[in-house]
Each structure stands twice: as structure tokens, then as C-alpha cells.
């Protein structure tokens, strides 16, 4: 998805993992995804650049659909569909 498309995405759940370092964002995502229904969209906020490579791989492993990420001044917003 393009940045414009991602900006228009309505997230059903937002996970704020800003400030935490690896493996914090991944653990936060894993914890939060349990409350998300299949088909719903989850957004992860992270300030750890490693998250940008981790979450797509995590999605692939867990069979979630990864949409992409937006960089906003060192904060990464990552979107996925369960």
C-alpha cells in the first residue's frame, strides 16, 4: 500500500510500543493481537527501527496480511490485518 492509502486506513486497534526496544514492540504486538478479531486491522506504533523488518516477518509467520508502514519523525506506524 502507498503512504496515502495507509494514512486513510481505519485501525480497529492501536498498539503503542513507542520507546521500548527490541523485543518490546514484537511482544506488545503479540499480546495485543489476541484481542483483535480475524479481519480487523491492527496498527503498531514503534520508535525502534528493527520493528520495520520484524513485523512483516511476524505477519508472514502468523498468516496475517501486512499492509506496510509510515515513518513519522522517527515513529513507525505499521499496519496489518488479522
Amino acid at each position: 500500500m502507498t503512504t496515502e492509502e495507509l494514512k486513510a486506513v481505519k485501525s480497529d486497534k492501536v498498539v503503542d510500543a513507542r520507546g521500548t526496544a527490541c523485543p518490546g514492540p514484537l511482544l506488545a504486538a503479540k499480546k495485543a493481537v489476541a484481542d483483535v478479531q480475524a479481519g480487523q486491522i491492527m496498527e503498531i506504533l514503534s520508535s525502534d527501527e528493527g520493528t520495520k523488518s520484524d513485523i512483516p516477518k511476524w505477519c508472514k509467520k502468523m498468516n496475517y496480511e501486512y499492509f506496510g508502514s509510515i515513518d513519522e519523525d522517527g515513529i513507525y506506524r505499521l499496519f496489518l490485518k488479522k
Partner: peptide, 11 residues
């Protein structure tokens, strides 16, 4: 321990 917890996040 980081690898162990990370692995659990990956199921």
C-alpha cells in the same frame, strides 16, 4: 532470553 521471548511471540 530475548531470543526465547521473541520466539514465543512468533508462536
Amino acid at each position: 532470553m530475548i531470543i526465547a521471548t521473541g520466539a514465543r511471540a512468533m508462536d
